[in-house]
Every structure is written in structure tokens, then in C-alpha cells.
Write a protein that binds this DNA or RNA. Structure first.
Lengths: 257, 257
DNA sequence: CTTGACCCTCACGTTACGTCATGGTTTATC
DNA sequence: GATAAACCATGACGTAACGTGAGGGTCAAG
């Protein structure tokens, strides 16, 4: 008398497949979010394809920072509720972004305040943080610790000082001119991409552009009438050229699409 | 024989004053973050002015989403450590914003997907996920699963659809024209500021601009040769006018600097 | 002297698991 | 068929920053 022979995945198998821990599966079982398809006489959990699929959905929602309870509720609900949930959640995320931006602003102010005080009194402490030292630091850091560390030490545009500001603006000018001179070359060529990289770096004097922002700017330069007109004024093919080059740059730098 | 007569604030008094719960003060005492200035024979906690001040500082850092442990560490430390902490924390916040923006994007796609499905037919829940995508999804799942897959990066801009894109661009055009027509007015006037507000909103179709970005753009429009030339082309005073108006807008909207 | 507002110290609940601890089961090897 | 490696199970405690009672003293007012 044989019982069922199809055993499905064991906990570890599913865990490895899905990239979650065994504990997570235990927990999901415990809270009734994802029960195994069957349980053996030995108490072992076995998961069939349907459970695998359900887990995928769960992880999808989890990615979006929905609580497990909320996930449990919307799964099995009609689409309408799901949409309502997503819309509400989207708004919450936007509010959160706004809050975080305010926080960053507060931090910037605090930093400005602190540096201000330091300038007045004990300059020594932050010697390494100003002027030339800053540059050397940035270079070493970008090589050793990657872009993130460099970003962290970027100060406000205002804090650059007149001279440096002038230099930065000059740099921007040169970048656009180089780009202009590169028209006709393959937008994906190393030479052009290097110019885009400089443009990217240049932007960072003002703010930290996310991959989305970079892509958006690329399109913006070509699509927005004002930008388009501006660049087309220098050369009719410049807007499209910029978009191509920037898009390719983003594809390479931030692969995922 | 009287002992000290200055009793300071009791827990409830301080809690009400600072807008925190009594439990919070108990907890801060427990973890050694904020000890009462003195404790009576009856075990009551009494807080003097110094403690009140310290609490204010704690709450300030807490506002910035620093962990209590971290707060405990930086308080009493020299300013340098505080700055390092803030710079690092600033970066963490920015990373978080980037992540949230990706999430919003994902939600937008999902919504678009759902509405599409609904409009096309009344297919069942998640069917769009089960059918074709499910297979590809399942395959990819074996290697990376979840995060990477979900992170499919279609453009926010593209997701708007042709019609909306056209409308957005038209809106941008109108904004610049209105700005142009406003030259001569006081850049700080309500009318001009309203246009700046529209410009601000407009930018949000592409990304979420921080106060720094807005200010940076304001200066950029006037200082960057390319932008300057573009706007000056419409009217010689436009670049400076834009900078003034935007800067004022930022001063009002994000007061602090 | 009683009432009510206030104080205290446990101590468990919260989220989504991580991390042992302890012990049974299966599988592969000798 | 014995043994070890690998896997399974169920507790149960730990996390961050408190919320929320429970149970029981303290204090000022009437």
C-alpha cells in the first residue's frame, strides 16, 4: 500500500530556490501565510508547484515593503482591493520620501552649522575635510571604497566657495563642448561614454542623481522643448545624441532592464 | 532637617513638556541614555534643566532616524565624530530614497499592468503573473529571484503613455512662457511664485527634487553657460529672474538657510 | 481619611525573522 | 547493518523602541 509518491520540495529545497531562509518558511507556515502542500507522517513539510507560486507572489509584495499581514489580506482578495492597497501604499512611500528629504536637509543644515562653528574656532579638527585634502580624499576613496563613500563626503554647492564654483562651472562648459565635438561618433563608443561619465560626475556637484534621474534627464534633454531648443541650438543632432549616449551609459552603469 | 528643595520635573511633567511618553523616559533611563538628575527616596525620578536639554538633543537626533544606541555614542563625543556620523547617515538616507523610488516605480508598473488587464478583459487575479511571465519568472527565480527580477526598470516617463507625455511637455512649455511673461514683476511676488510652484510640480514628473536640487537648478539656470544661453535667448533678464524667483521660492518653502 | 492623580517595577506584546538547543529522520557510505 | 553527514522538527530566546496593562506604593486635596 503505497501512498502518494510525489513529495514536492522540502523546506531546504524551496528555501534555496527562493533565496529565503528555512526559518522564513517555518514562520510563514506558522502565521498561515504559506502552508506546505502536504505534511508527511514524519512531520516534514512538502511544497508543490502551487505553493512555490504563492511564495513568489508573497516575495513580490514583500519587496514593496508591505507587511506580511497586509500581504495575507490582499492575497486572495479581488484585484480592486489590491489596486487600492497599492495606490495607498504608493502615497505612503512618497510621503516617506518627502520626509527623508526633509531629514537630509536638516542634516545639511546641521553640518553647515557645525562647520561654521569650526571655522570660527577650532579649524584644526576638520583640516582634512576642507579644500585640497577633500580632493585627495575623494580620489582615494573613489578608488578604494567606490562611489558611495565619495558621495557621503560631498558637501553643499554653497560650501564650495566662489573659486571652486567657478571651476565647476567651467568644467560643465567644457563637458558640453566636448560632447558637441563628439557628434558623429558612435554614441556608445568609449570616448563618448567617457564624456557622459564626466557629465554624470559633474551633476554630482549639485545633487546625487539616481539611475532614474539620469535616464530621465537623457530623455528630458531630447523631449523637453526648452532643453531641446537649447541643445539643438548648438547642433541639431545634439539632443538625440545626448539621449542616446546617456541612455547607453545608464544601461551599462546600471544594468537591470 | 530639610534636604534639597528643588525637585525638578517629574516624569509626567517632562513627558508632557517634551511630547514623549512616560514609558519612553523610563526606557531611556533603563538603557542609560537619559538618567534623571536625581531619584527621591520614594524612587521617583526628577529631571533638572540639564536633563531637559539633553532630552531635546536626543529627540533632535531621533528625528533624523538615528538609532538610540548611535545617539548615545555620539552624544558627549567631539564634534568631529558627530559630523562623520551625520555624513554617513546622510548617505544612508539617500540610498533609502533611491530604494523607495524604485519601489514606487515598481508599483506604477504593477498598477499599469493591472489596469491593462482589467481593461482588456476580466481575467482572474494575478493571471498576468501566472501565464507567460510566470515561466520566465520562475526560471530567473532559480538564480536571483525577487529583488532583481521585480526591479525591472522601465521608465517612469515611458509609463506615462504618449498622450500624457505630450501633455506634460506642453505644460512645461507653458510654464516657461508664463515665466517669460512675468519678467519685470517682482520675483518674490505671489504671482511669480505660483509659477515657480508649477515648475516645481512639473519637475516631479521626472524625479523628486530635493530642496538642494531646486536651489541648484536655480543657480544652474543662471550660471551654467548652456542654460544661461538658452534662457537668455528668450529674454536677456530671464536667467537672473529665474534664479531670483527660484531662490526665493526655496527660501519660503524650505526655510532654514 | 479617602479619593484620584501620580509614581514605581515587572513583564509580556509588537515585526519578521536569526540563532541556537535538543532531538528525530533520511541518505550515503563503509 | 552500523555509523556519520545532512536534513527535518519544535521550542524558545533575542532583536528596537517602546505600548500596554498588572499590581502596588505615594502624594495633595477635600
Amino acid at each position: 500500500m503505497l501512498t502518494e509518491t510525489k513529495t514536492g520540495y522540502t523546506v531546504k529545497q524551496l528555501a534555496d530556490l527562493a533565496g529565503v531562509s528555512i526559518r522564513t518558511l517555518h514562520y510563514y507556515d506558522e502565521i498561515g501565510l504559506l502552508k506546505p502542500s502536504s505534511v508527511g507522517d514524519n512531520g516534514y513539510r512538502y511544497y508543490e508547484a502551487e505553493a512555490v507560486y504563492r511564495l513568489q507572489q508573497i516575495l513580490f509584495f514583500r519587496e514593496m515593503e508591505l507587511g506580511l499581514l497586509q500581504i495575507k489580506e490582499i492575497m486572495g482578495q479581488p484585484e480592486f482591493d489590491l489596486m487600492m492597497t497599492l495606490v495607498t501604499h504608493r502615497q505612503a512611500l512618497q510621503d516617506k520620501i518627502a520626509r527623508l528629504q526633509t531629514l537630509i536637509h536638516t542634516i545639511d543644515q546641521t553640518l553647515a552649522h557645525l562647520t561654521g562653528e569650526v571655522d570660527m574656532s577650532k579649524k584644526k579638527l576638520f583640516e582634512g575635510f576642507t579644500e585640497e585634502e577633500q580632493e585627495r580624499y575623494a580620489q582615494e576613496a573613489s578608488e578604494k571604497y567606490g562611489a558611495e563613500t565619495v558621495q557621503a563626503s560631498m558637501q553643499l554647492w554653497k560650501s564650495y566657495g566662489k573659486e571652486k564654483q567657478a571651476a565647476i562651472m567651467q568644467e560643465g562648459k567644457v563637458i558640453y563642448q566636448d560632447m558637441l565635438a563628439a557628434i558623429g561618433q558612435d554614441a556608445t563608443s568609449a570616448g563618448v561614454q567617457a564624456i557622459v561619465a564626466r557629465w554624470h560626475q559633474h551633476l554630482r556637484y549639485f545633487y546625487e542623481p539616481t539611475p532614474e534621474i539620469l535616464r530621465g534627464l537623457g530623455h528630458h534633454y531630447n523631449d523637453d522643448p526648452a532643453f531641446h531648443a537649447n541643445f539643438a541650438d548648438l547642433h541639431p543632432d545634439l539632443p538625440a545624441f545626448l539621449e542616446q549616449a546617456i541612455t547607453h551609459y545608464c544601461d551599462v552603469q546600471f544594468p537591470s532592464a
